[in-house]
């Protein structure tokens, strides 16, 4: 389990990083926290001639409020975001999702941007980004562009980023008062990737749900939005019904940890539980 050899680059500016990527094309790969990339290199499931390390790049590690959004720099450590009062206050769903990522040792190294750029369909943060309609900022040799989360996750481990682009930040919308959020996931053991997971945000006015978002992970090739279930919730369905609607729109596959049928069945359960928890919070 030793990686094959590679050239290591440690740029300090975004332009340098993207220039390196442009120069080496698909022979280069970005290194962030290394918690997904390094195991793949060590198992020789992937090999790259060049690694471009983002850890020393300036300007990628801030958490800041920018016109109605919380902007999280790409290399903000998951543990830093997890313990950030700003994140807890502005994007509670992100705060709630972060502790579900692996173990604290992994979150100490792993980055918010890395998790989203890696686009593992069983990961929490891509589902959060999708559910909250986050905007992904991509930096390339020609400058930056914004990509809606809905357009970002193309398929398993595949994103809308070009070879010469890095994810530089993620902007999460901040919800107003009367909102509640919840994360529910099933894992075989503490810290494992989810067999099935749901992230939910709701906003209520009195007894009425005025805003609802449901993201699913571990049950498709990408994180999924349970749009039909959101619509059901907005039109008065209860949590159990919405859960069933969410489950009826997915077709997860089997693996050694659980069958696709299992994942479908429990999705109805965890969506229900997440909605109930989110509603409780919204109403409290």
């Amino acid at each position: 389990m030793k990686p094959s050899s590679f050239n290591y680059h440690a740029p300090t500016r975004v332009e340098e990083a993207t220039a390196l990527l442009a120069e080496h094309g698909d022979g280069a790969k970005v290194l962030a926290g290394g918690q997904s990339l390094v195991p793949m290199l060590s198992l020789r499931l992937a090999s790259f001639e060049h690694l471009v390390d983002l850890n020393k790049v300036d300007g990628l590690s801030a958490i800041e409020r920018v016109n109605g959004h919380l902007r999280v720099g790409a290399i903000v450590r998951q543990a830093v975001a997890e313990h950030s009062a700003d994140v807890a206050a502005s994007v509670p769903l992100l705060s709630k999702a972060l502790p579900h990522i692996g173990h604290f040792q992994i979150r100490n190294r792993g980055t918010v941007g890395g998790s989203i750029a890696h686009a593992d369909p069983a990961s929490e943060l891509p589902a959060v980004a999708l559910a909250l309609d986050a905007t992904i900022e991509a930096a390339g040799p020609g400058g930056t562009r914004k990509i809606a989360a809905a357009d970002f996750f193309v398929s398993t481990w595949q994103t809308a980023l070009a070879d010469d682009e890095i994810l530089s930040a993620v902007e999460f919308p901040v919800w107003g008062p009367g909102s509640g959020f919840a994360v529910e996931e099933l894992t075989r053991r503490h810290g494992d990737f989810a067999l099935a997971g749901a992230v939910v945000g709701v906003q209520v006015s009195g007894d009425t749900v005025t805003k609802a978002t449901i993201g699913l992970f571990g049950v498709g090739p990408t994180p999924l939005r349970a749009s039909a279930a959101e619509a059901a919730l907005l039109s008065g369905a209860d949590a159990a019904e919405a859960g069933k609607v969410a489950a009826s729109h997915i077709s997860p596959v089997d693996d050694i940890h659980a069958s696709g049928a299992y994942r479908t069945q429990v999705t109805a359960v965890i969506v229900r539980r997440a909605i109930e928890a989110a509603l409780k919070e919204a109403r409290s």
Partner: peptide
């Protein structure tokens, strides 16, 4: 007797 087996 994992969750998938038991639920099945």
């Amino acid at each position: 007797l994992g969750p998938s087996q038991l639920l099945t």
